[in-house]
């Protein structure tokens, strides 16, 4: 299915947001996710079903002022 991940369109097969993170080799606990402009907390990822055209943001801690 076509997904927009961090602003880039990609063709990935993943049933849930948790499966998507695994499919794309995201590692570790230090990630925050949003789907179509809403937070998906870490506990909700495994039951968050993805659909064609979904917009996903995957963020991590970075330096900031």
């Amino acid at each position: 299915m076509k997904l927009i991940i961090n602003g880039e369109q990609q063709e990935v097969e993943a049933g849930t947001l948790a499966a998507l993170l695994t499919a794309l080799d995201y590692e570790g606990d230090w990630l925050a996710t949003a789907l179509n402009g809403d937070l998906v907390s870490r506990g909700e990822r495994a039951r968050t079903v993805l659909n064609d055209g979904d917009r996903i943001e995957i963020l991590a801690p970075k330096q900031g002022g």
């Binding site: 995201y26 230090w30 990630l31 963020l59 991590a60 801690p61 970075k62």
Partner: peptide, 19 residues
């Protein structure tokens, strides 16, 4: 200390290392 959130590249783990 202040920190931010930015897009993480697939397969990356640098944000975790920083934190």
């Amino acid at each position: 200390v202040t920190v931010s959130l930015r897009r993480e590249t697939a397969g990356g783990g640098r944000g975790g290392q920083f934190f």
